[in-house]
Amino acid sequence: MHVTVYYHAFLREKLGRESELLVLLNESPSAGSILNAFVAAHPEFTTLANSLNIAVNDEIVGSETSIQASDRIDLLPPYGGG
């Protein structure tokens, strides 16, 4: 399955792009599969990956949440509000 992942703030600038098509190898992919695919594509983010949140259709989800190809997926770097 292919999913489009949207990047924000630090991630967007570091990667130099706003979104990216990632390939998920699992038959029934979860949010965790997205992180794995992201790290596989960008190994330099392996450490930071633990601090990323995933939003699916504008909700923060846990790594077990299943993913559809049509989902809106955002990868969120550590927050800095306030």
């Binding site: 924000h8 703030a9 630090f10 949140n53 939003a55 927050y79 800095g80 509000g81 306030g82």
Partner: peptide, 14 residues
């Protein structure tokens, strides 16, 4: 509220 905002709300600062 300010403590939780900093850690739980997707806002980014440069």
């Amino acid at each position: 509220l300010i403590d939780e905002l900093k850690t739980t709300v997707p806002i980014w600062k440069k």
